[in-house]
Design a protein around this nucleic acid. Structure first.
Lengths: 206, 206, 206, 206
DNA sequence: AATGAATGAGGCTTCATTCAT
DNA sequence: AATGAATGAAGCCTCATTCAT
C-alpha cells in the first residue's frame, strides 16, 4: 500500500480523479464508490474526503474535466478556417467521436438526472454552455439570424439530435443490422439540414 | 399496516407496478428498491417475489407496459387517413408527448443500459421494434426506397433525434430561456427534413 | 404445471421423496428447500406440508430410505455363505461403496448433528442400528466374545473407521496423490485387523 | 450497546473470533451468521467486514487457529523421547482429546465440505498437512518403508480412523451404552494395529 | 494530510411456515 | 387433497459518511 502511495507523490487529488475516471470508463458508474476509488488509488476512503466534500463533488469534478475535454475537442474542430459546411460537419463528428470514445464520461455529463445527483453547481453549467455556443456560432455564420431562425435554439436542437444518437448507441438500442459507422453517417447527414432553411414546399396544413 | 393492505383489495401485482412507477417518477431509478416498493405498497418485500421473479422482472414488466402504451399512441397517430406530412408530424408529436407525459416509463424504456439491468428479454424487443416500423412505413410512403434512402435506417435517425430531445428535457439540460413547447416545435421542424431528400447543392451563404 | 402434476398420478408423497433425493444428490443439501422441492415436483410448497409435517420430517424420511437402502446392501453382502474374512471384507466394501455412490445421502444419514436437525426420532434409530448388528454378527463369528472383545463395541469401532474414510473423501481432504481406490483398499486392509485379537507383542508400558 | 462495546476494549477482531467459536459450539455452523456474530459481540455486522473480508475469511481464520492449536498439541505429544508405541499412542490420544475438547474447531477444520465454503486457501492447507506428517514420521520409525507399507498413506488411514471416531461422537451417533472413554480406548487399540505389518495368515477361528 | 474504526441504512434475495379458500 | 397469498426472519454484503487520533 505504501508503495502505491509513494508513487503518487503528494498529489492525491489528482490520483483520485485519475482513478475515478479510469474506474468510470472501465467498470462503469456503479464502480465509482468511495471505497473502490480509494482502493484503486491506494489510500483510505476517508482521505478522499479531504479533497472532495462528498461523492457528488467528486463526480462534479469528473464532469467538469469531461466538459473541458469536450470543449478542447470542439474548439479544435471549430477554430480552423475550413468553410462552414465542412467545419460544421467536423464539429458534429468531433462531438460524436467524443461520445463514442468516452461512454461513461459522456453519461455522467449528459445523462444524469438532478435526481440522481445533487444538482451540478450553476456556475459550472456556464462552462458547459460554451460548447453549445460553438455550435451556435457556426449556425449563425451559415444562416444568420431571422424571425425564422434562432442560432442558439438551433444549437440546442442540433445538440439534442447528436445526443440522441449517442444515447441510443450507448444503450445498445440501435438495430444491429446497421453498423455504428453507417448510423453515425446518417445522423450527420440529417444534422446537415440545419444549415439550410426548411424547404418551403411541403407542410401545407397547420 | 392492515389498513393499507385493505386498501388494495386483491390486486397486489397492479399495486406493485403502480407504486414502482411512482417511485421511478418521483425519486429516480436508483430509488426503486424492493424494500421501498414494498413499503409504499404496504406489503412485505417478500410478497413482491410472489408476483415478480426478481427486481429485473419487475422493471421488465414496467417496460412492457410502457411499450404497449407507446404503441397504442403511435398506432392511433399513424393509422388515420391524413396526408403524409401531417401524419408524420402527428406521429412525432405523439412520441414526444408520450415521453413528456411518461418520464418514468420513458427512462426505463429507452435510457437504461444493459449493464444496469439484465438484458431485456429478446422476445420483448420485437414488441418494441413495432414502433420503429410505424415510423419506417410513413417514411417509405413519403420517400420511397432508393440507394440514397433506407426507410428503416431513417426511422432510427428520426427516433434518435426525438429521443435526444426528450432525454435532454428529462435531464433538465435544456436552457431555461426556451420554453419546452418552443424546443419541441423546433425539434419537430427539424424532424420534417427527413421527409425530403437532402438538398444536393451546397449551402449558399458562404 | 398441470402436466407434471398429472404425471405423478396421485402419489404426491412418493414424488416429493423422489425429487428431494434427486435434489439432494445432484445439487446438495442446500438445494433441498421446500420451495425447490415443490418446484421440481410440480406442486406448491404448501402441498408438501400435507404429506410431511415440516422440513425435518421430510429429511427424516429421506434418512429412513437411506438406512433401508444401506441395510439391503449390507444384508446382501452378509447373508451369503462365503467364509468370514471374505464376507467381512465384502461388507466393508459394500458400506464404502454405498457412501461413495450416495454422498449427500450419506451425509444426512451420518453427518448431521442434532443441532442442525430436530433429533431423528428414537424409534427410527433402531432401524439404523440393524446395520451395526450385521457387523457385530460377523465379528462375533470371527472372534467370539471374551473379556478382551465385545463384538458390539467392535462393530462401532469398525463403523467409525469406515465412516472416517468416507467423511474425509467427501470433504475432499484426502491427499490427491492417492487415488480413492488406493485409499479405500488400505482402509479395508486396516479394518481387517479387527478380525484378529490385538497382537500381544508390542505395547509394554501401560 | 455502548456498555457491551466498552467491554471489548480495542480488540474487536479477537472478540469476533471468540464469539464465532462460541456460536459454532453452541448453535452449530448454520448459526454462525454475520448478524448473529455482530449481535453477540456488540458491534454492527458492517464492522466485521473491517476485520474479515467476508464470512469465509472469518471461518478460515478460525480454521487456521484450530490448525495451529492442534499442531501444538501434536508436536508436544510427538517430540518427546518416549519409545515408539507409547509415543504413537500418545499422539492418537492427543488428537482425540483435541477433537473432544474443541468440537467447534474440529468441525470446521475437518468436516466442512468445499461446497459449503469457498475452498480453504491452498497455502493454508500446507499448514494442515504438517499434522499428518507427524503421524507419518512415527509410522516410518515403527515400520520403515516397504512395498507393503507407505507411511504417508498409513498416516491418512490412521487419521481417517481417528476422525471417524470423533465425527460419530460429535454427531452423537455412538450407542449410549458405551461410555465415550471406552469407545476412545477401543479406537486407540484398533489404531495400534497400524504399527505392525498385517498378519499374513488368515484368521484362525473359522 | 491522512488514517482506522465504526456506523446505520439499505441493497437483493431465500427460507420455512401459516391461513383462508 | 391442494392451492395462492402472505409473512417475518434472516442470509451476505456494500455504501457514504463521521469521528477521534
Amino acid at each position: 500500500m505504501s508503495t502505491i502511495a509513494m508513487a503518487r507523490n503528494g498529489d492525491l487529488r489528482r490520483a483520485i480523479l485519475d482513478e475515478s475516471r479510469r474506474l468510470l470508463l472501465e467498470e462503469g458508474y456503479a464502480s465509482v464508490s468511495m471505497r473502490k476509488v480509494a482502493a484503486a488509488v491506494g489510500c483510505t476512503a476517508t482521505s478522499i474526503y479531504l479533497h472532495f466534500e462528498n461523492k457528488d463533488a467528486l463526480i462534479h469534478a469528473l464532469i467538469e474535466e469531461g466538459m473541458d475535454l469536450l470543449h478542447e475537442v470542439l474548439l479544435e474542430a471549430s477554430c480552423c478556417e475550413t468553410p462552414v459546411p465542412e467545419r460544421y460537419k467536423g464539429m458534429c463528428r468531433a462531438f460524436l467521436d467524443f461520445g463514442l470514445a468516452n461512454r461513461e464520461y459522456y453519461e455522467i455529463m449528459f445523462q444524469m438526472t438532478p435526481m440522481e445527483m445533487r444538482r451540478y453547481p450553476t456556475e459550472k453549467y456556464r462552462k458547459a454552455r460554451r460548447n453549445l455556443e460553438l455550435f451556435a456560432e457556426v449556425l449563425l455564420e451559415a444562416r444568420g439570424t431571422s424571425t425564422d431562425f434562432d442560432p442558439a435554439l438551433g444549437s440546442i436542437v442540433l445538440w439534442s439530435q447528436l445526443h440522441g444518437a449517442l444515447s441510443l448507441i450507448h444503450a445498445q438500442r440501435v438495430d444491429k443490422r446497421y453498423d455504428t459507422e453507417v448510423f453515425i453517417d446518417s445522423t450527420i447527414a440529417h444534422a446537415m439540414c440545419l444549415l439550410q432553411p426548411a424547404s418551403t414546399s411541403s407542410p401545407t396544413h397547420s
